[in-house]
């Protein structure tokens, strides 16, 4: 928690116009605490920190937390170490919705894009349920397979829209597909903030069934968990999370898969500890990644999705070689 706060403050100071950490902290304090403050900083610094960098940092934190929690929950309920919002089609559904809206002339960021991403994720989740159902039961393996197949389908549709789009729109579309938090404003934070808070609390309340489902469908049933219904409940929650963040940040990969595994290696698979740790871990990770995205190729800015993959993949492989991946078989 403290680490997250420190990193947020540091992140809010980093950029083309550097603002010292102390000054950043004082600017933030001036905005947060009521009363008179003696301004030892310029108006420009104030604007940069409060209007641009802080919303962006907070958005990165929200997106990271959302994807990490969604991945943690999905890996448990699907009992598959590869599960994350991408594998289950929710992310690609959301991206397709957003890209379709963009190509149709909607502006970024706008209510239309958010709505389209939401509906894309919802439609994807719904399709995956329907395809994975057989005889009133939602089966885990079928869910993953249906999700992967749908992902490919949605990605194909998204690519088709991208290549056939007018040239003027192409850079915006690609940037969206790779994911970015650079366009963050205070207004954009509201929906994801509410959704993330609600879903994290929900996941925290449901730690018992989450732990039970992780040990097997039959065992969970014998422990009093209605497995099919619980799976649907958690899938709805995770597609809400995914839709909410993809709408404002695009498709940011690897966070949902890697962060839960790393957290599990550190604190074990018990969700009473894992949910809060993954929430904070995901937030910290993505804020750090965003710092790299802004500074690595300055003044050029990298799409954050490239950095998560570039940082995440080797780190994950290193962990994989170092210790067997536990928690989910």
């Amino acid at each position: 928690m403290v680490a997250l706060l420190v990193i947020i403050v540091v992140s809010a100071g980093i950029g083309p116009v550097p603002v010292p950490v102390g000054t950043t902290a004082r600017i933030l304090w001036a905005h947060l605490a009521p009363g008179e403050h003696v301004a030892t900083w310029s108006l420009a610094q104030d604007q940069i920190v409060w209007q641009f960098r802080l919303p962006r940092t907070l958005l990165a934190a929200l997106v990271g937390a959302a994807l990490a929690v969604a991945g943690t929950v999905l890996q448990a309920v699907i009992r598959n170490p590869l599960a994350d919002p991408f594998v289950l089609g929710a992310s690609s559904g959301a991206s397709l919705g957003a890209v379709a809206a963009l190509a149709g002339g909607a502006a970024v960021p706008g209510l239309l894009v958010s709505g389209a991403a939401f509906s894309g994720a919802a439609v994807a989740a719904l399709l995956v349920f329907v395809l994975a159902q057989s005889g009133g039961r939602v089966e885990s393996l079928r869910l993953v397979l249906a999700g992967v197949a749908l992902s490919y389908l949605f990605s194909a549709a998204t690519s088709w829209i991208t290549v056939t789009a007018e040239h003027g729109k192409l850079p915006g579309l690609v940037f969206f597909l790779l994911g970015s938090v650079s366009t963050a404003t205070w207004e954009m934070l509201a929906i994801p903030a509410v959704v993330v808070l609600a879903c994290v609390i929900h996941a925290r309340v449901r730690v018992g069934p989450l732990n039970a489902v992780m040990t097997g469908d039959e065992t969970a049933t014998s422990l009093g968990v209605d497995v099919s219904r619980f799976r649907i409940e958690m899938l709805v929650a995770t597609s809400l999370l995914t839709g909410a963040v993809v709408a404002v940040s695009g498709g940011i990969g690897f966070v949902g898969m890697v962060v839960p595994h790393v957290c599990r290696l550190v604190v074990g698979a018990d969700h009473r500890r894992l949910i809060p740790v993954a929430t904070l871990g995901g937030a910290i990770f993505l804020v750090l990644v965003d710092i790299v995205a802004r500074t690595a190729a300055a003044p050029q800015e990298l799409p954050i999705g490239i950095v998560t993959a570039a940082v995440g993949a080797p780190f994950f492989l290193w962990l994989l070689r170092r210790r067997p991946v536990g928690g989910v078989r």
């Binding site: 992780m214 074990g268 018990d270 536990g326 078989r329």
Partner: peptide, 14 residues
């Protein structure tokens, strides 16, 4: 209470 045959053994729980 049930002792099933399908119990996952690789779960990192204490």
């Amino acid at each position: 209470a049930v002792l099933t045959q399908d119990h996952a053994t690789e779960v990192e729980l204490s």
